[in-house]
Amino acid sequence: MSNDVKIGLVGFGMRARSLTKVAHRPGLGAVVSDVFDIDQDAARNAGQELGFPVTAHATLEALLAADIDAVLIVTPDHLHVEHSIAALRAGLAVYLEKPMAISAEQCDQILDEARRSRGRLYLGHNMRHMPFVRAMKEIIDSGAIGEPKVAWCRHFVGHGGDYYFRDWHADRRFSSGLLFQKGAHDIDILHWLMGSYSSRVAAMGQLMVYGDNPRRSVEDVETPWRLDDNPLSAWPPAALRELNPVVDVEDSSMVIMTLDNGTMASYQQCHFSPDYWRSYTIIGTEGRIENIGDVEEGTVINVWNKRHYGYEPADLVVPVHPEPGGHGGADARIMDEFLGFARSGGPVETSPIAARYAVAAAEAATQSLRSGGEPRQVPPARQEDVSYFAD
């Protein structure tokens, strides 16, 4: 008899397809057996697209009542609170894709339900499993740069228009803003590397490029570019077609954060950059580190921890090698960890409390940038929730 964890998919979009590639491993630990999506055609066609049989359900309630052990919740962000609470109440192990929700209040509702139901809640912050991030964490923890004091992340979202301005992400009613959808990743990593959460933030941001693009539909052009075409052919950003009818989120944002432990960090995000990667710099009392590249072969971590005049090559260069499984191997690693957590619980690298603070900081920063850069306090998590997940 197989001991595979039986998994149900809640939502069958792009991210669900990626996770299914590493989650479905019949006879080797897990099987994706059931799916629910509000698009019934998508749910019915899931098995054919995935290449193995799944049972499609017409309602979330029907899926949660099926013979499954765990769910992967990969629905649009504004639905996370409803879907995760229902799954926790059903007694299932829950993999909740980041961002946790679109407000700190919604995150607290999810955390409270997990605590009350003694639920197994796991957050899909897969960047904690990216080889380059783990290498940076190991270097910092080794003391190679002394005590970390300041950090920044520059996020060049080269395909931002393709991925985030063609669908619900571009509408703040459903995403709140792209500091949640994309920024939650990096804010969480900045918190993790610096060993503390944001307590106060200030931000500036604008809708600079995609807001005044008049070509929102294919009727106005003879040969519209589509997402399944070569993305490199759509340049400059104004060449994009078929944008979402509503575009009211910022395509460029800059955030300054003061953390609880007195350190500082900044996050800069641009969705019309020609390149697509993240650059982290951490400066400590005895040196600094910086990554060049992130999930591709050739990525390195540069370490400077000797005194220099002007620019000189790094004192130490640490090569980082991506692994199979998507996002440099992070998708496979995070699914391995979740499946072990679904079976028996135990310590994990991701954290529901940390995921909540990433959203809370993103929310405060979004409020700041929409009010002229006014600094905002980040509301702390409830102590009873912190204690539950610490245990």
Rank of each mutant, 00 (worst) to 15 (best):
G146N: 05
G284V: 07
T55D: 01
L190Y: 14
Q269H: 09
E61N: 12
M100P: 04
S217A: 14
V246F: 02
M208D: 11
V378W: 13
I189N: 00
K6G: 04
T299G: 06
L9K: 07
A358C: 00
E138A: 15
P322G: 08
L259D: 01
C107P: 03
H24S: 10
D275W: 03
A238N: 11
G11D: 01
V359C: 05
E61I: 00
D4G: 11
A364D: 07
N126C: 10
D69Y: 02
I38C: 09
A365C: 03
V5C: 02
I353F: 12
Y164G: 00
H125A: 09
D171V: 07
S196W: 07
F338V: 05
G325I: 08
A104Q: 04
Y210F: 13
Y267M: 12
Y267S: 05
W152A: 09
I187G: 08
R116N: 06
G211W: 02
V201K: 11
V348Q: 09
P76T: 08
P319R: 10
Q106L: 02
H159P: 02
T285Q: 07
T350S: 12
P53D: 09
N244P: 06
T20P: 07
I7A: 06
Y164H: 15
E250K: 11
S142R: 12
S233V: 06
V359M: 05
I102H: 01
E138S: 04
Q367M: 12
V295P: 01
A151C: 11
Y122G: 06
M14A: 12
L123P: 08
G372E: 04
F156V: 03
E97G: 08
A86Y: 05
D77S: 15
H191G: 04
W152L: 13
R128D: 03
G183N: 02
I140W: 02
E297C: 02
P324N: 11
A56T: 07
V209G: 00
L259F: 05
E286G: 09
E113K: 11
S196C: 01
A238Y: 12
V35E: 10
L28D: 14
A184V: 07
S2R: 10
L232H: 13
G195F: 00
M254E: 03
D162C: 01
L9W: 08
A358I: 03
T59N: 07
L178Q: 14
L190W: 12
F12D: 00
P148V: 06
L121A: 02
A104Y: 01
L232D: 14
R118A: 14
D294C: 11
V201E: 07
P76R: 09
V133S: 11
H159C: 06
P231H: 05
S266H: 01
D336F: 00
T366D: 13
A184C: 13
Y276D: 15
M100T: 13
A358S: 15
G183R: 09
D162K: 14
A381H: 11
K149T: 08
Y122D: 04
F156M: 14
A65S: 14
P224V: 03
